[in-house]
Simulated assay, not measured.
Amino acid sequence: MTESGSTDQECRACGLIDGSQALPGGTILRTPTWVVEHCVGPLGAGTLVVKPVRHVVHVADLTVAEADELGPLLRRVSAAVTATMDPEQVYVCLWSHAGAVPGHIHFVVQPALKDDLARHGAYGPALQTAMFDAGVLPDEKAVADVCDRLRVALGAD
């Protein structure tokens, strides 16, 4: 959503929020200012995206309400990913570029699973790069199943 509250027609993140683009697993959690969805990229089943409902390009542009909710929500989502996926670590990072242009900010909450670390021989940002280079999208049924489990862990069912 733009500052005025309308959907940004060029923004994939907004399209996933408003339903104009397919979202495997559906919305996991929605608060008044944030939405939690499964990642649509190749970062593995259980990787979530936490993004503002409205179209925001810079963290500095978050409203007070959005900023106040962010830290507790990231902790809550990370705890749900930990409980559901049993990872070695949970990575939380901000992404906002698409085609070298800043876009709708989103925080990626990714379980660093032993199998992924071993398969790619990498961790941290190098693991994410290796997963993107491999380009393997998680199975949609696996995504739907993990989304259902995460809804329960988040009390959103």
Rank of each mutant, 00 (worst) to 15 (best):
V81T: 01
M85G: 05
A118P: 15
Q128W: 13
V101S: 14
L73W: 02
P111Y: 02
R119Q: 08
R76S: 12
Q110L: 13
A67P: 00
L70F: 01
A122T: 13
A79D: 14
R76E: 11
R76T: 14
F107C: 06
G99Q: 12
C93D: 06
T129R: 11
L94Y: 13
V90D: 01
A126G: 14
L117I: 15
R76I: 04
R119T: 07
A100T: 11
P102D: 02
A112C: 09
E88V: 14
P111Q: 01
P111L: 01
R119D: 05
H120A: 15
T129L: 13
D116L: 10
V101K: 11
L94D: 04
G99P: 15
I105L: 10
G71Y: 01
R76D: 08
P87D: 00
Q89F: 14
G121N: 13
D68E: 06
M85L: 12
D68T: 03
E88Y: 07
A122W: 07
L113N: 05
L74P: 00
V109H: 04
H97T: 08
P125V: 06
Y91W: 14
V92F: 04
E69R: 02
K114F: 10
P87S: 01
W95S: 07
H97A: 10
L127G: 13
A98P: 03
P87F: 00
L94N: 06
A83M: 04
T82F: 05
D115M: 04
T84M: 01
G99C: 08
L117T: 11
A126F: 07
A83R: 15
R119P: 00
Y91A: 13
D86C: 09
R76A: 08
V92H: 04
E69L: 03
K114I: 05
T129M: 12
C93P: 01
V101L: 11
Q128M: 14
A98D: 15
V108P: 01
C93K: 03
G71T: 02
D116H: 14
H97Y: 09
G99I: 08
L94V: 09
R76C: 12
E88R: 12
A118I: 10
K114E: 10
S96F: 03
P87K: 06
S96V: 03
D68A: 05
L113G: 04
R76Q: 13
Y123W: 11
D116T: 05
A83V: 05
D86K: 05
V90I: 14
V90L: 08
F107D: 10
A126L: 08
R119G: 01
L70K: 03
A83Y: 07
V77T: 09
S96T: 04
Y123L: 15
V109T: 08
V92D: 02
L113R: 15
Q110N: 08
V90N: 11
